[in-house]
Simulated assay, not measured.
Amino acid sequence: MISSLLEPFTVSFVLRALAGGVLLAAVCALVGVWVIARGMTFLGEAMSHGMLPGVAVASILGGNLVAGAAVSALAMVAGVNALRDSREFGRDTSIGLLFVGMLSVGVIVVSHSRSFATDLTAFLFGDVLAIRQADLVLLAGAGVVVAVVSLVFHRPFLALTFDPRKARTLGLRPGLTNAVMMIMLTVTMAVAFSVVGTLLAFGMLIAPSAAAMLVARRLLAVMLTSFAIGATATVAGLWISWFAATAASATIAAVAVAIFFLVLAARRVADGVLRRHSPKGAL
């Protein structure tokens, strides 16, 4: 009985998918918390869609798809930063316009390339079961880089997130700190694309971290909890997809989102119980 339940994880390509999903969970845990805390969720979503032009061009030219995704995401970040101080419209407007514009360019490029159009589903939704050894090395390298940057810029990130004025007063160079954080987000979205595709990368970045912030307070605890949730979603998603014959990448992302709503529901139930059992007026 147990051996049959563990059957998926005896197959080599599923084990590679498992390793890739766990590595991605680690990278997303280090970045997703900052994205949510700084209110950059919409930017992360727009970036996940805005990677399509770079992926399409890289595919047509025979280049590296992750590099193409990263270049496209960096172009979006540069555009957002250039327009963020505009008096005519807000930051969300500029993100929305760039998001639609870059997605439109990507669709136009795809529509003129028959070879790319046939692989569009894989680029949009990913194929975690097709992860190769080289992809695992890329994910591990990205994880090391993001971990080192997070450690070195821990104090500036905190100051920029919760008190930008104090960060400037302390000489922590918020402009540079913001640029580093944007590059971290770009790297994360680019490597996430290689695992779960452009459209589902955002789910893996946000859902585990959002769930973790419901149950933990300290930054390190939130990141560790986010990693645990992302890794759990990977294991459960691969297991479900094997027996239910569903798309593995989409199932992993769906499980991550489902875990968030389960944690949210449990949190609300727990809060309700505490209110009923607390002395009147204590809360």
Rank of each mutant, 00 (worst) to 15 (best):
L15E: 05
K166R: 10
L214H: 07
F261R: 10
F99H: 09
V128Y: 08
V273A: 09
L18Q: 00
H112Y: 13
I131M: 13
M47R: 01
V66H: 08
D163E: 14
S209P: 00
V128G: 07
L30W: 07
N178L: 14
G63I: 01
C28G: 09
S113Q: 00
M184L: 15
R168F: 11
G272M: 10
A46I: 09
A56M: 13
A228P: 00
L151M: 10
G171T: 03
V187D: 09
V71H: 09
A211H: 01
P208N: 00
R84T: 02
T169P: 04
A236E: 05
T188D: 00
L6M: 15
A245M: 10
F13Y: 07
L43Q: 00
A231M: 05
G237T: 01
V149I: 15
F162D: 08
A147Q: 11
A26I: 14
M213A: 13
V80C: 02
G44I: 00
G68R: 15
T93P: 01
A70W: 15
G21P: 01
N178Y: 10
A221G: 13
L43A: 13
R91A: 03
T118V: 14
R132E: 10
L283N: 07
L24Y: 07
T246G: 04
T121W: 08
A192Y: 06
V110E: 08
L170S: 01
A82K: 07
S86A: 14
F202R: 10
A122G: 12
G63V: 03
V22F: 03
A17C: 03
S59H: 15
V273Y: 06
M182L: 15
F89W: 11
G171C: 01
A282F: 15
P164F: 15
L274Q: 11
V107F: 10
R217D: 14
S209L: 03
P164G: 12
L283T: 08
A142Q: 04
A254G: 15
R268N: 14
A167L: 02
T93C: 08
M223R: 13
V128L: 06
L136P: 02
L274F: 08
A207D: 05
G96Y: 13
T161Q: 06
H112A: 10
V215L: 13
L6R: 00
N81M: 14
G197Y: 00
K166S: 09
H112T: 10
A167Q: 04
G203Y: 11
N64I: 10
A17G: 04
A192S: 14
V105F: 07
A253W: 10
M204C: 03
V145Q: 11
R267Q: 14
